[in-house]
Simulated scan of single mutants.
Amino acid sequence: MNTEAPFIRAIKVEDNEQIAKVIRAVLIEFGVPKVGTAYEDKALENLYNAYREENTIYYVIEHQGKVIGGAGIAPLANYEGPVCEFQKMYFLPEARGLGLGSKLIEKCLLKARSFGFEHCYLETLPYMEAARALYKKNGFVSLNKPLGDTGHYSCNMWMLKEL
């Protein structure tokens, strides 16, 4: 019996197909609109390349050779200042409830600080209640309006954390 624990690592090119499937599966599970969200992001087909830009990183959670979740950070699009965006955190059901969300957030925020960012922004949806509770537990506070312009116009809840 393989009892290997899930672990967090930087994305590899061979993860592209798996992580795209994970993200789309979770979005469908939660009934998220396919337009104005990560579902239609062109970068989703090649996250490895998308996160090779300066001051970006994407991590996946691997368990027994399978990608079961991930999240990343990148500079906030269309915004001036030292603010990054916490992006594309999605977990398959088997990755939930294991404390991996907080570990992944912490890893991403440590990297964001090392890149020189002073704040971390994210966008989410009202019915992603568990995710919002996790963000709040990890120090994110709600905003009344969005920052920058990510193109995710269907995401109508915004949060920010000082790094």
Rank of each mutant, 00 (worst) to 15 (best):
C155L: 07
A38W: 04
G139M: 05
N144T: 02
Y135M: 14
E53F: 03
H119K: 09
Y59M: 10
E40T: 07
L163Y: 13
V60W: 07
A74F: 02
R96L: 08
L160Q: 01
F117R: 07
K161S: 07
F7D: 11
A77D: 10
L134T: 10
N78M: 15
L92N: 06
V141T: 05
A50I: 01
A131V: 01
I61E: 09
L160A: 01
I73A: 13
G116C: 03
K88M: 01
G31L: 03
Q87L: 00
R9W: 08
H63P: 09
A95V: 12
M159H: 00
A95S: 14
P146F: 10
F7W: 15
Y51M: 03
A43Y: 09
Y153K: 06
K42S: 04
E14I: 05
G72I: 04
V60E: 08
L125Q: 07
P126D: 04
I73G: 13
P6D: 10
A131I: 01
E129W: 06
P75W: 05
I28H: 03
K21G: 14
E40H: 05
L76A: 01
E129R: 13
F30K: 03
E94G: 10
G36R: 09
I8P: 13
K137D: 06
L92P: 15
H119Y: 05
G72K: 12
P33E: 08
T3P: 14
H63R: 15
F86P: 09
F115W: 06
P75L: 02
D41K: 10
H119E: 12
F140A: 04
A43C: 13
G101Q: 08
F91H: 04
D41I: 15
T37M: 08
E94R: 12
I19W: 07
M157Q: 11
F86G: 11
T37V: 09
Y48H: 14
E123L: 00
M128T: 00
E123T: 00
Q18N: 10
I105D: 09
